[in-house]
């Protein structure tokens, strides 16, 4: 299956050459969020805010939430403003 992974702020350092904002990943069925992040080597500890389709995935669900084909995953470090 294919999912879109978008990284923000300091996490963009983990994007491969030629990708400014995110990548499309080919992952096996049943892959999880940590699986997707592992492809680019993003440490899970830095993934402070995780959204799928614009909805937050909370800490307790991060390990178990299985990704589905076509989903969009957005990952942020701890950020703030106002």
């Amino acid at each position: 299956m294919k999912i879109a992974l978008r990284l923000y702020a300091t996490l963009r350092d983990y994007l491969p050459e030629g990708h400014d904002t995110g990548v499309t990943l080919e992952l096996p069925e049943g892959a999880t969020i940590p699986d997707a992040l592992a492809v680019l080597g993003v440490p899970l500890s830095l993934a402070h805010i995780i959204m799928i389709g614009g909805r937050h995935v909370l800490r307790p669900d991060v390990q178990s939430r299985q990704l589905k084909d076509g989903e969009e995953l957005a990952v942020f470090p701890a950020i703030g403003g106002g």
Binding site: R6, Y8, A9, T10, I49, M51, G54, A74, F76, P77, A78, I79, G80, G81, G82
Partner: peptide
């Protein structure tokens, strides 16, 4: 976060 990107770092997360 704030010293590096300033408050404008919020654009992308509010968009998402």
């Amino acid at each position: 976060g704030l010293p590096t990107y300033g408050t404008d770092v919020l654009v992308n997360i509010l968009h998402e």
